[in-house]
Write a protein that binds this DNA or RNA. Structure first.
Length: 556
RNA sequence: UGCCCGAUAGUAUAAAGGUAGUACGACUGUUUUUGGUGCAGUUUGUCUAGGUUCGAAUCCUGGUCGGGCAACCA
């Protein structure tokens, strides 16, 4: 087998199965989301695993919506899930629904009743819970456990036919009330829910529980490797029990540790709260760890796939550093994003020896990471420019190599300038910086012989356009909000979003393409937001550039 | 005080009884018309106590620590 890269434990299992000729060398995985929320980066890990493993071993992957609880599910979620998987770059073989199997599942249940392995219980939820005992005490049977097969058959049919209200009866597997594994203490198979299902409509008022739907669905589809997260480990004996009693295709369940990332939360329940209680603008808010949020933020499918690859898979609890995700998107965007200039906090700079009213067009390559630069765009230059306010310092420190009285810098793609003076208003705020430029230092044919340490970005006052720029930071101010005292929402980072209404951008950015990443030189990677309109551009900051200077400042 | 899962640098992840390696991070240096990128280098690790073995991160036993399990959720 392949020896080039080491295998993760799932690949090892697969290669062993393959070498044993198991299932005739057939590999079929499935990705089984419940359509009750949007997919997040944790699901992306599972998607990359399930689809990735199948692809690697010439297998296939089914997309199966685990829609056994009609009260929480909706087609809105089905649609978003399909879109997100496709966007990530994966293709499923069959699109299936657990609800496709409701008839079959019902027949399975009847078969178990006939074998004396399932019974109808009239007890309330509380009574059943109480009779289950506790991890250290065995459970006790409820009065209905000894009902006859005939009676169970009749009652179950009556349940299906809508003769009972919600909660009146359930169907339970008859296994072992004293099992040390709580999941084997006569688990529920069916409950009554008079609810409208997004696919089966009002056909059913009886819905199978996860444990009686998942493994059976796997078996019906003849899934060879059913990969799920660690919290299902205790369910595995039950998964196998049903398959064995029913004598159906023996799918096997394997578990891996779910993804956690610091400074965010990863449970659908919590994400739903953030949406419903308006802490964010929606499931696709760029601060959300959802696939749709990351997409809107400017993350690329490749960066997410690379991330999944780098974090690996194991059975150990983990918390990945958000910095790794950021590394992955920078890595991708550095190679692909076109460079542009934008000034977020402007201050005016006047070149006193450049002819007033004159404009010249300079050229800047689109992408310096690629041979040929992927072409150039022209950049207007004149005597009145904008530069970033923090690129000027009244009293520069030793290591500061930007602009300050007497200091020289290069204007990116343009000339070297020297600062001669500056103007302040009554409040002491710098309003204008006066410089002279070196005519023979023009980018591309610099004959000045002058070497400067700093290069700064700039914009031509007359031609700069304005845009709204949204700067995002981590959603939470603590590494593990779920583990803090009190409500996780108390730990939301109040500065997770900063909106700059009147940022200035290069005129060429009017042609920005949605879904494309741009590097605003020295500022970070940005992409057009879905709120953007032709007459009102809105950019999201995907991620900052690594900033050695900011780090230096923090030290002192 | 039942059952189950786990423990390798700061964070992840390899090493299938035989040199503890890789990535991210951190730190140095170097290149650079982005304090970006690239390149080179440095740094830090097998939870613990025993046992088996010529040899243990790996196998065995005890302990410690972390996580999970008693939803008519998935």
């Amino acid at each position: 087998m392949s020896e080039e890269r080491s295998l993760n434990f799932l690949e090892e299992i697969i290669e062993e199965d393959l070498s044993n000729g198991k299932n005739g060398g057939r590999i079929l995985t499935r990705f089984p989301p419940e359509p009750n929320g949007y997919l997040h980066i944790g699901h992306a890990k599972s998607i990359c695993l399930n689809f990735g493993i199948a692809k690697k071993y010439n297998g296939k992957t089914n997309l199966r919506f685990d829609d056994t609880n009609p009260t929480t599910e909706d087609v809105e979620y089905v649609d978003s899930i399909r879109e997100d998987i496709k966007w990530l770059g994966f293709e499923w073989d069959k699109e299936l629904y657990s609800s496709d199997y409701f008839d079959q599942l019902y027949d399975f249940a009847v078969a178990l009743i006939k074998m004396g392995l399932a019974y109808v219980d009239d007890s309330t939820a509380e009574e059943i819970a109480a009779a289950k005992g506790s991890p250290t005490e065995p459970g006790k049977p409820t009065p209905n456990r000894s009902r006859s097969i005939e009676e169970n058959l009749q009652l179950f049919e009556d349940m299906k036919d809508g003769k009972y209200p919600d909660g009146a009866k359930v169907l339970r597997a008859k296994i072992d009330l004293a099992s040390p594994n709580m999941h084997l203490r006569d688990p529920l198979m069916y409950r009554i829910k008079h609810a409208h299902h997004h696919r089966t409509g009002d056909k059913w008022c009886l819905y199978p529980m996860y444990d009686f739907a998942h493994g059976q669905s796997d078996a019906i589809e003849e899934i060879t490797h059913s990969i799920c997260t660690l919290e299902f480990v205790p369910h595995r004996p039950l998964y196998e029990w049903f398959i064995q009693q029913l004598n159906i295709f023996p799918s096997k369940q394997y578990e891996f540790a779910r993804l956690n990332i610091n400074y965010t939360v990863m449970s659908k329940r919590k994400l739903l709260q953030l949406v419903n209680e308006n802490y964010v603008t929606g499931w696709d808010d760029p601060r959300m760890p959802t696939i749709s949020g990351l997409r809107r933020r400017g993350y690329t499918p490749l960066s997410i796939r690379n991330f999944s690859e780098r974090i690996g898979v194991a059975r150990r609890e983990n918390q990945i550093d958000l910095g790794l995700l950021e590394f992955c998107i920078r890595e991708d965007l550095n190679k692909s994003a076109w460079r542009r200039m934008a000034v977020i906090d402007p201050v005016k700079l006047i070149i006193t020896n450049y002819p007033k009213g004159q404009t010249e067009l300079l050229e800047g390559e689109n992408n310096p990471e690629v041979e040929g630069g992927e072409g150039v765009r022209s950049i207007p230059f004149s005597s009145e420019l904008w530069i970033e306010r923090d690129d000027f310092m009244e009293e520069p420190t030793k290591k500061y190599f930007r602009l300050g009285p007497g200091l020289m810098v290069r204007l990116k793609h343009a000339y070297i300038i020297q600062c001669d003076s500056f103007v302040k208003d009554d409040s002491g705020r710098v309003t204008e910086i006066h410089c002279t430029y070196i005519p023979e230092s023009r980018s591309g044919n610099d004959t000045s012989g002058i070497h400067v340490k700093g290069t700064i970005h700039w914009l031509n006052v007359e031609s700069a356009k304005t845009a709204e720029i949204r700067l995002y930071d981590r959603l939470f101010r603590v590494e593990d909000p779920s583990n803090e005292e009190g409500d996780f929402k108390d730990y939301i980072n109040p500065e997770s979003l900063t909106v700059i209404k009147n940022a200035l951008i290069e005129p060429d950015l009017a042609n920005a393409v949605p879904g494309f990443g741009y590097q605003f030189i020295r500022k970070g990677y940005f992409t057009l937001d879905t709120d953007s309109r032709p007459d009102y551009l809105v950019f999201n900051r995907t991620v900052t550039l690594k900033d050695a200077w900011a780090k230096e400042l923090k030290k002192s």
